[in-house]
Design a protein around this nucleic acid. Structure first.
Lengths: 361, 361
DNA sequence: CCTCTCCTTGAAAACGCTTTCCAAAATAGC
DNA sequence: GCTATTTTGGAAAGCGTTTTCAAGGAGAGG
């Protein structure tokens, strides 16, 4: 191994100047005669010199690198955010560490510390499980710039960008309600995640606004996966008095629901309407094409990256950024089936904030 | 910013020993009195010391970090490989840089150099565009361990793991042939990618073995995306004498094909059979569930990571590893439609190795 | 009791770069 | 033409580790 590396000294020697001068040229400081500078650049080109970023990092106390911490890279939603962050940050010459937490809080903590020990400049926390105050404290302690992505974080001197999920889900629910649906099933993501909670809240608010009593037997907590959606649909439709529409907290679960329904020979949307969230790439290619709350995924990443760049250069916490989702109506939703809307109104149950906990595999 | 960092000297002082001793304790060298070691560990715990990985990297000449270079992270296939690599490598305490090339050869080169300047230990090149010999040369020059993932690389003293795509696609084609299909459309990925080429070869071999004349008007080159598949299907089925089945080089393109066919009101599989490749997570949840060549994606990543670990610890190029794909028959394929098989046999065209180039957006 | 090992420990020298400090050179001001 | 000021480039001091080297101490063998 160990190909001989070109160091700054070699360049200095080649150009007949001191290492200090080479450094100045490399870092575009003034105070070096143009003629000399050219000679140095020549040498750099000739020997194909690349500064040792590690040595540079040691003296500067920070390395031009960011960490991205996500629950699950293999989930398209997150991988698209990663891509956006990377594309935005790359032109500045920065690299990006990627880390998976599998949604485990402790792993999140550990990863942040490990990243800090590598002297990275900043960390993007995507859909973190950690409470905002802890993030703030930890980041200050470790001397790292944090930017929270896709989680509502307020009043914490913490840079964050998120989507207004409450409004989005009010809109999604109202879409269904306007089609005459009254029994609307809801499949939430893990409620420990703020977004899941907000989406559920949007659903509840919409129901309340339209005078529909909430039926907790229609609300399920799942895990954002296809399998989770499938399984939940199975439970949901096994009960008597099933919903006429189901609103899912993300597309993957909607895919699972669609798959279950298809297997059971249930027609979508004529018999059951289905709505997802995210607008992942396959959403428009499903059959039927999925009506979904389109999250500005790429924009989420780009905005986060821009905030980070601003944050690190000005050292001022940039203001939060709230993005808006958009309901995309495709063919998985339609008017409620004849006779289904009123017939089987459920005996009113108490409004309860408990939802059934499900085994999240 | 700049939370004061705990250094080895502070630990040394706290424990009343020299930095050298602390270092020895941290790195589990023996030759340090147990009692002293305990005192040091105590200090480490007390001050929450984490060694500065950058300084450590500088003296060691290498940092315990790997780079993963993929064409597109937002593609599930690649993001699943990344995840596998990471999960395998993480327990050793190594971190992972992620880089996107968008399939651009020059960016691949540049990224590799940048990574090398960060003194990383090894690079995983996933589906690289670079020729194997260049990889070997560059890696030697930069002093970095390369492992090639998902690309057939032979006779190059280069560690690589790939899937036997030729056999896989012979099998997939034969599945279709056994159902009576004779006019089988083929949608290839970018033919600059070895895998795409191999899959096409498998298709050709199968046809030849069964005495079916190759019709180049049925072979298209696309770009592995849903949109690409959709567009190609459109062209393919616009021509007179269209195929009765289409074999796609990946699932995403198959999704595009399915979507086009669905839009046109064409029934799958009764009218047209469709086969994909990869077995991405949604494949089994499509309607109809997609018959596909299941790539051992996760295994690909895990194997690559294990090879890397072995490579870096023994400094010997580990032997190549060839994995096998498996045809998963679901419901997107069926017997050829009545009368379609023999009726419109196409005027024999010369066997040609040219395929039509398509605009790959 | 002395010598020879072996083990433990600390001092100091790298690692490759940036940056500060200084002296020399160049320019300006009178 | 002489002092005052600004440029310019080199020497050297770190940055936080690991690692080498040598010294000191303890134990063993004679």
């Amino acid at each position: 191994m160990a190909g001989k590396r070109v160091t700054i000294k070699m360049i200095a020697q080649e150009a007949g100047v001191s290492p200090a001068t080479v450094s100045r040229v490399v870092n575009n400081k003034r105070n070096v005669r143009p003629e000399l500078a050219e000679r140095v650049r020549e040498a750099i080109r000739k020997l194909d010199y690349h500064a040792n970023e590690v040595a540079r990092g040691l003296v500067r106390g920070t390395v031009d690198t960011f960490g991205v911490v996500v629950p699950d890279i293999s989930n398209t939603f997150f991988s698209r955010i990663c891509k956006a962050i990377q594309n935005t940050v790359m032109p500045t010459g920065a690299a990006v560490f990627l880390h998976n937490t599998d949604g485990i809080l402790n792993r999140e903590r550990q990863i942040i510390k490990e990243l800090a020990s590598k002297l990275i400049t900043g960390i993007f926390l995507v859909a973190p499980r950690m409470p905002a105050t802890e993030i703030r404290t930890l980041a200050d302690e470790l001397g790292v710039y944090p930017v929270v992505v896709d989680a509502r974080v307020e009043n914490c001197r913490l840079a964050a960008v998120w989507v207004d999920n409450v409004t989005a889900f009010i809109e999604a629910s109202e879409h269904l309600i306007s089609k005459g649906h009254k029994r609307i099933g809801f499949i939430a993501g893990p409620l420990a995640v703020a977004n899941s909670k907000d989406r559920l809240d949007g659903y509840r608010i919409a129901l309340r606004n339209h005078g529909i009593k909430e039926d907790t037997s229609l609300i399920y907590e799942s895990d954002f996966t296809i399998a989770g959606g499938y399984k939940t649909a199975k439970e949901m439709f096994r009960k008597r008095n099933p919903p006429t529409a189901v609103l899912c907290s993300n597309d993957l679960m909607a895919v699972g629901v669609l798959s279950y329904l298809h297997k059971q020979g249930v027609e979508v949307p004529s018999e059951i309407s289905v709505v997802g969230c995210d607008d992942i790439d396959v959403a428009s290619s499903l059959s039927p094409p999925l009506t979904t709350v389109s999250q500005p995924i790429y924009e989420l990443g780009v905005t986060a990256a821009q905030m980070m760049l601003q944050y690190t250069s000005t050292n001022e916490v940039p203001p939060n950024s709230i993005l808006h989702a958009k309901l995309i109506i495709r063919n998985s939703t339609s008017n409620v089936q004849e006779g289904k809307s009123e017939s089987e109104t459920h005996p009113a149950e108490q409004l309860s904030h408990n939802v059934q906990k499900r085994d999240n595999r």
